[in-house]
């Protein structure tokens, strides 16, 4: 596992300075627009989708063909992609959190509990996005996966809106209820991530190289 993470880290090395550069620009933007949430949402989602670059590097070099001749289990190869993505998400979160808190302190946009619930929601969104990205890229490859992912996200968003319209909730849940739901959202996201991992392993095991 460490080996696979090292290889992905080396592949990304040339990109890391660009990631930092973009994070710095977004930090600047968040102060300029006095909106800490821009910083949090953009950088986290940006970090999450970095895994697509790794898939692209791997596909361009025919990495999987070679990796499957090395003493790794297929599940290990898949797991390394999830761990790398989670490390990127957590790393970027740790990097931008002090700026988010400081920016929020300066702009006085949210109370601390509101801020925490927003962080929980954005992290959950990143994890759910990741749960869709990895199996889609494994199944379809980098070219088709982007289109499939777009269709998937588009249909899910409109599907959800359609269902909500049908249910037609008489009243929206209270702010307190929504806040409590946001605190547990990362657990929900991690359950989706686990299902996604199991699906990805199955898809990878059926692949031929």
């Amino acid at each position: 596992m460490k080996a696979l993470l090292l290889k992905d880290f080396f592949s990304m090395k040339s990109q890391i300075k660009w990631i930092f550069f973009i994070v710095l620009i977004v930090i600047g933007m968040s102060f300029y627009f006095e909106d800490a949430m821009i910083l949090l949402a953009i950088t986290l989602i940006f970090g999450t989708i970095q895994i697509t670059s790794i898939f692209t590097f791997d596909e361009m070099s025919g990495w999987d063909k070679f990796a499957n001749t090395l003493p790794f289990r297929k599940s290990e190869i898949v797991k390394s992609k999830y761990i790398l993505s989670l490390l990127l998400t957590v790393g970027i979160l740790l990097l931008v959190c002090p700026f988010v808190v400081y920016s929020n302190y300066v702009t006085d946009s949210f109370k601390i509990n509101e801020l925490f619930s927003i962080i929980c929601l954005v992290v959950s969104l990143s994890i759910i996005l990741l749960s869709f990205i990895i199996p889609t890229f494994i199944k379809f490859g980098t070219q088709k996966a982007r289109i499939v992912l777009f269709i998937l996200v588009f249909s899910l968003s409109y599907g959800l809106k359609f269902v909500l319209d049908i249910i037609a909730l008489p009243t929206l849940p209270s702010v307190e209820t929504l806040q409590r739901m946001s605190y547990v959202s990362p657990i929900f996201a991690l359950i989706i991530l686990t299902i996604s991992y199991l699906l990805s392993v199955k898809l990878y095991e059926t692949k031929e190289f």
Binding site: K7, F57, S61
Partner: peptide
Amino acid sequence: FDDIHFPETLTAQQINKFLQETYV
């Protein structure tokens, strides 16, 4: 194989670090 299947940004030095962790 008929080509080296490592991502093209890696160096021989980095490949050593990767394979040290790969093979017993």
